[in-house]
């Protein structure tokens, strides 16, 4: 009998001041809404900051992928601070370094090029979501 797929939590940083924070958020939405709906799920990062029991349970009982917008790694550290284990941690800038033709702009919201970069990033992360959902890579 096959193993029941788990939910995979995708957690972007809550960045409000940098373009890669906006890319991280857009990437997470691309995964949850378009690429892996029902399999990839979100929670609010600030809920972890206040130790919300439901949010803490979500990230301690399911594999978590974090996408951070800067080297301070707030998303990754916030999961670890509540006892969750980060299965895979990304920094959004990594995707730009791999796709220099897709330079994102905008802080509140990314421009069209930034949205394309987020789609590329989400496509790559979706492979990791699939592995984690199948119980691989943990």
């Amino acid at each position: 009998m096959g193993k029941k797929p788990k939910q995979v939590v995708v957690l972007p940083c809550s960045g409000i001041g940098k373009v890669y924070g906006a890319v991280a958020r857009e990437t997470a939405y691309e995964l949850v809404e378009k690429m892996r709906p029902g399999l990839a799920t979100l929670t609010c990062l600030p809920l972890l900051v206040i130790n919300d029991p439901e949010a803490v349970a979500l990230v301690t009982e399911n594999p978590v992928i974090t996408i951070d917008g800067c080297p301070k790694d707030c998303a990754k550290k916030s999961v670890e601070a509540v006892g969750g284990r980060v299965a895979k941690a990304y920094e959004a800038i990594r995707f730009y370094k791999q796709h220099k033709d897709l330079k994102p702009e905008g802080i509140a919201e990314v421009n069209e090029t930034g949205r394309k970069l987020a789609q590329v990033a989400a496509a790559e992360i979706a492979q990791e979501v699939d592995k984690l959902a199948a119980g691989e890579g943990e």
């Binding site: 809550s14 924070g21 600030p46 790694d73 707030c74 550290k77 916030s78």
Partner: peptide, 27 residues
Amino acid sequence: CRLACRQALDERPGETVTICLPLFIAG
């Protein structure tokens, strides 16, 4: 919330400052 805060910050650059909320833990 994020967009409105960003707009307020951009319109009042000399009088406002922000911090990403999770930095209270991660910073």
